[in-house]
Computed example of a mutant assay.
Amino acid sequence: MNDVTAVAQLVLHERRARDRGWWDLMREFLAPDAAIRLSWFRGRGAAFIAASQEMAARGDAATHILSPATVDVVGDRAVVEIGAAIHLRGDLHGVEVDLTSHARLLYRAERRGGRWLITSLDPVYEYDSLAPSTPGTAVWLEADVLARARPSYRMLTCLLSAKDYTIADDLYGDDRPEPVRQLYRTLFDWLRADTKK
Rank of each mutant, 00 (worst) to 15 (best):
M1C: 06
M1N: 10
D3A: 15
D3S: 15
H13K: 14
E14R: 14
R16I: 07
A17N: 13
R18S: 11
R18N: 06
D19S: 11
R20F: 10
G21W: 12
D24S: 15
R27Y: 12
R27K: 12
L30F: 06
L30N: 07
A31Q: 03
P32R: 11
A34P: 12
R37A: 10
L38V: 06
R42P: 00
R42V: 11
R44V: 02
G45S: 04
G45Q: 00
A50K: 04
A50G: 07
R58T: 02
R58P: 04
D60F: 07
I65W: 13
L66M: 14
S67R: 11
P68M: 04
T70F: 10
T70E: 11
D76S: 12
V79L: 08
G83P: 09
G83T: 07
A85N: 10
I86T: 14
H87L: 13
R89I: 02
D91W: 09
V95A: 08
E96V: 10
V97K: 00
V97L: 08
D98R: 11
H102F: 13
A103I: 01
L105R: 02
Y107K: 07
R108F: 03
A109S: 06
R111G: 05
G113P: 12
R115W: 02
W116E: 02
T119V: 10
D122P: 04
P123Y: 07
P123R: 03
V124M: 04
V124T: 11
Y125H: 08
E126G: 03
L130K: 06
P132D: 08
T134R: 13
P135M: 11
G136K: 08
T137G: 01
T137D: 11
W140P: 01
L141E: 06
E142T: 07
A143V: 02
V145R: 05
V145L: 12
A149I: 01
A149Q: 02
P151D: 07
L156V: 01
T157V: 01
T157N: 05
C158R: 00
L159Q: 07
A162I: 00
A162M: 08
Y165S: 09
A168M: 04
D169C: 05
D169A: 15
D174T: 15
D175L: 12
R176N: 14
E178L: 15
P179H: 03
L183Q: 13
T186F: 11
L187H: 11
D189I: 07
W190K: 03
R192Y: 14
A193N: 06
D194Y: 08
T195G: 00
